[in-house]
């Protein structure tokens, strides 16, 4: 996989733009062959991560920069095998080992976002960026439970071209 993201956007830490980021990620996931439920889960994970950056990283400051980058993860036969999402910010740094979801048996408001990110994504890794800010790398693989109904086992589409990058997929 090239280091260069296939999509990279810069947004500010204003909650007004959360739905736009969610729709972008969900739409890309759909084109890569994820099921509707998986697309919703991926968009939810990104939404939760962005909420955490805005609320805890920037202390609700609405003008902090956030970068959202997307890559398809290669699968078999050149088809997309998943989606890699990276979120970077210039917010305050925290020890990645301190970022944990709370015990779900303790029913109380808050603290659920990290749990949801880890639950719905196959990988979720927090790191400190060089200098300042945090980086969250998330990966969701296309598997039997997360692929769209029209997607073949090899990752092709119903149009017959067999290519993972086919733009007719999911039409």
């Amino acid at each position: 996989m090239s280091d260069r993201p296939h999509i990279r956007i810069e947004m500010v830490s204003n909650p007004l733009y959360l739905s736009g980021a969610r729709e972008l990620v969900g739409s890309v996931a759909r084109r890569l062959g994820f099921s509707e439920l998986a697309c919703g889960q991926i968009a939810l994970a990104v939404d939760e991560a962005l909420c955490n950056i805005i609320r805890h990283g920037y202390d609700r400051r609405p003008d902090g920069p956030i970068w959202l980058s997307l890559w398809p993860v290669p699968g078999d036969n050149g088809s997309a095998g998943g989606l890699k999402i990276v979120l970077e910010d210039e917010a305050k740094q925290i020890d990645p080992s301190a970022i944990r979801g709370r015990d779900l048996d303790d029913v109380k408001p808050g603290g659920l976002g990290v749990h949801i990110i880890r639950e719905v994504m196959d990988e979720a890794r927090y790191e400190k960026r060089d200098g300042h800010g945090m980086k969250l790398t998330m990966v969701k693989k296309i598997g039997p439970d997360s692929s769209a109904p029209g997607r073949t086992a090899a990752g092709g589409s119903d149009c017959g071209c067999g290519g993972g990058s086919c733009l007719d997929k999911q039409e």
Binding site: L44, D47, C51, P109, G110, L112
Partner: peptide
């Protein structure tokens, strides 16, 4: 149509 954890937290507060 959509809810995330701030919405869930609000309902947990309401339940309490």
């Amino acid at each position: 149509e959509y809810m995330n954890t701030p919405g869930l937290a609000t309902l947990v507060e309401a339940l309490q």
